[in-house]
Design a protein around this nucleic acid. Structure first.
Lengths: 345, 345
DNA sequence: CTCACTTTTCAAAGCGCTTTGGATGAATGT
DNA sequence: ACATTCATCCAAAGCGCTTTGAAAAGTGAG
């Protein structure tokens, strides 16, 4: 069932039917309702490709996920971010289109998506430091939003980010205040912008306290469970193991916990742990009492905000750049406690 | 840059340029290379909407995720399944489109996606028992594939599924062989087809051994970490707690482990645990030695297979129905061991 | 009843591509 | 020399929609 058929059934022109359905004023309420009824009855749905061709807009927003040849990992926060975004998209009549691209062809993927008219805007996730994609998108003139920021990129762009630095500063200070001095940082890959900012916060807390961290306790890699376990295991074997661990992800923190319990250590008593909690729906940090003391910020909500901002940008490409910095809250759970009295330290 | 402009630059007709780029034979190799060079030089990318309009195909495959009003959870296996699928899609020139829909409007979402010509085929994830969506899709005549199956639906349809019954049967028998009798099943929501099949396998293993399970040890809910913890906690308080736990997800199994360690119990010695491992990239079950004894089946691979099958279906709508049953492997880790000698049992 | 104006409807062009059904000219066979 | 074939190329139609510019129908004032 297409417009032509529907208009023939109604004995109206395609113009009128189209206008009736799209809410234009130059059609009588009478015929409008008649048209709507017929459309509903015959299950008419305007072909989105034809509509897109005619309007020049696709009502689709693109995401590119790196089908990373390097690291095969699909970021677990991906699902929640997308869930948040897609909710807002559909509220506004947009669909979401994915493409995957390996690390070498991400730029091409974005370019293709936009230039062949498949999308009206794109979302950039997981920016690295000096993220080259941002300039590419800027030059292309595609409306876009970055989830995160990129240190070193000075062209203006829209972004939503959680205040990684302040939240890790605060978490570190919290541990210092509890008497901890040997605080490990199990961080994400430090070419990722968020990881660098978290490290900065961690370092600044030490600086503010007049202390200096042991660089031997700073680790960086992709944030899997096994990684958290592995690094903790190794650090527990040090002559002077950490009394506290600051961990960039809940998943890795679970590995940390596993290592601690394998070594007969009690979390919160022997070793304190703070994790960053993206508030993933399937990995809630406890229900009433949080399992981990954590810096919490919902990545799903970030997805919603990003979607809203991008849609606004698409509608008003020349508006001034907008940014949004979300503050993570520090939720105190049972994984932290005063530093144990240690003979040597 | 569009076809018309490009053809004017080249001094050729749109027909010839189009044919040259799409590899049709009725164009000389000479002009073909010339056209390709010009297309590349000017960054020409055919508009996919126009192409879709002209060809009647959109080269897009649709997924609908329930933005569940009921349970807000975004299935963690979602990301990996999609990653696998999207890889195959892009290898074959397809894009992936998402829409979210709340539980009440999922059918409408599929219908809209297909009938307005936005997609050439759709993927159905997470089928329930007697899944109504399957019949809907069948009636619509949209090519589709189901990840999983649906007991009670007797129309034919393509599916890929892991053999949930046999893998849980095998896991249960493994525990029985180790001397366990009080084996808990921490299952997913039992209106989900996979969960029902797992329970069937579990029950059949008991039946085969001439035993009968304690229905009090069978739990069912959404498979979060907290759920695994909570149910384990409760069952450990029973007069006659389980000596083994069979758990439908790694995420919940992590909660199980947490509950055990909080109770001072050692996994594999005091209580054996088997989990179902979807082999998620960010949640590997250990690197060399598996953490959990597990029934393992890569959901990412399932995504790849599903994508391949769907693409074949789109190309040959009238081929006989194809199905694919994947066998999970039982990997034995350190979370299982002989049933402890207990005074009462 | 006519004029000016508003409301309602329409025919046709256009979005950028593919594809049908020729046209053109060169090459081949006789 | 002619007809015949083949390799290249092209003009134009069509995909299903929106939108422009104009026509028809209705309305109230004079």
């Amino acid at each position: 069932m297409n417009l032509k058929q529907l208009s023939e059934i109604l004995g109206l022109s395609q113009t009128t039917v189209s206008r009736a359905l799209n809410g234009y004023p130059e059609v009588s309420e009478d015929t409008r309702t008649r048209v709507q009824a017929a459309a509903h009855k015959h299950g008419y749905r305007p072909n989105s490709r034809a509509k897109g061709l005619a309007t020049g807009r696709s009502m689709v927003i693109g995401h590119v996920i790196p089908s990373s040849s390097q690291h095969e990992m699909v970021n677990p926060i991906f699902g929640d971010f997308v869930a948040g975004a897609v909710k807002k998209y559909s509220e506004n009549g947009y669909d979401l289109m994915f493409t995957s691209a390996d690390d070498t062809s991400i730029e091409r993927a974005y370019r293709s998506l936009f230039q062949r008219g498949a999308v009206d805007g794109v979302v950039l996730q997981g920016p690295k430091v000096n993220e080259p994609r941002i300039e590419v998108l800027n030059r292309m003139g595609v409306p876009f939003i970055v989830h995160g920021r990129s240190t070193g990129v000075d062209v203006p762009y829209d972004w939503v980010d959680v205040n990684n630095k302040s939240s890790f500063l605060r978490a570190t200070r919290f541990l210092i205040d509890l008497g901890h001095r040997r605080i490990a940082l199990i961080n994400g890959l430090e070419d990722m912008d968020f990881a660098q900012r978290r490290r900065d916060g961690y370092l600044e807390a030490f600086g503010q306290a007049g202390l200096s961290p042991d660089t031997n306790l700073m680790r960086s890699a992709e944030m899997t469970e096994v990684y958290g376990h592995h690094e903790t295991q190794k650090m527990l074997c040090l002559d002077d193991p950490p009394t506290a661990i600051l961990c960039s992800s809940m998943i890795s923190a679970i590995g940390v916990r596993r290592a601690l319990s394998e070594n007969g250590l009690e979390m919160g008593a022997d070793v304190s742990v703070i994790a960053h909690d993206d508030d993933l729906s399937y990995l809630k940090n406890g229900q009433d009492v949080p399992i981990f003391t954590a810096t919490r910020s919902s990545v799903r909500q970030a997805g919603e905000i990003a979607a809203d901002m991008l849609i606004k940008r698409i509608k008003a490409p020349d508006d001034p750049v907008k940014t949004r910095l979300l503050e993570a809250e520090l939720v105190v759970g049972r994984s932290t406690g005063p530093a144990p009295n240690r003979l040597l330290s």
